[in-house]
């Protein structure tokens, strides 16, 4: 077999591309709203901005069925273990978008109660800035993630931080 095909990577790379394409076109987010950003996340899914255009309108209530966790809002010390557990429950491959200043860095609340950046708990693929990021910003973040997956820049095989 190996002798017959001179360039075996030809077939394999296109399959990889095909896989990546399917991953980006039906990336179901988990319903994981925390704070203000969750409202904008819901607004992104609603009529005006319509995430269904990207095959993402199905917010899955169960993390087992979700591919993408959008950490929308501030993560408190009490919520952090829960968040990690939800992430662990998601099936591979999975991605994480950290939405908004609070999820990315703790935002303006640099105090005892908040985790200063969700990347301390779960690996983050795309950070979306804003307080809260508007639906357009979130869509931009999502498209950035899609591009990264398509180009192979973002690959996820293990859930290790």
């Amino acid at each position: 077999m190996a002798g017959e095909v001179d360039n075996p990577s030809f077939f394999l790379t296109t399959l990889q591309k095909g896989v990546n394409w399917t991953r980006t076109k039906s990336m179901w987010p988990a319903t994981f709203g925390l704070a203000c950003c969750a409202i904008e996340m819901m607004a992104t899914g609603a009529a005006h901005n319509d995430m269904a255009r990207f095959g993402m309108e199905v917010f899955r209530a169960s993390p087992r069925q979700a591919d993408l966790m959008i950490v929308a809002g501030r993560v408190s010390q009490k919520m952090a273990p829960v968040l990690r557990q939800v992430y662990d429950q998601m099936a591979e491959p999975k991605w994480v978008i950290s939405m908004g200043a609070c999820a990315s860095t703790g935002g303006m609340f640099n105090n005892y109660a908040l985790v200063q950046g969700v990347d301390q708990i779960v690996p983050v693929d795309v950070y979306v800035p804003g307080c809260p990021p508007g639906p357009q910003s979130l869509l931009h973040g999502i498209l950035t993630l899609h591009q990264g997956i398509m180009s192979g820049e973002i690959q996820r095989s293990t859930g290790v931080v």
């Binding site: 704070a35 809002g73 408190s76 009490k78 919520m79 829960v82 609340f109 105090n111 109660a113």
Partner: peptide, 11 residues
């Protein structure tokens, strides 16, 4: 409750 406690009164 408390899963979204942000310490705003302290801030």
């Amino acid at each position: 409750i408390g899963y979204l406690h942000t310490g705003m009164e302290k801030t």
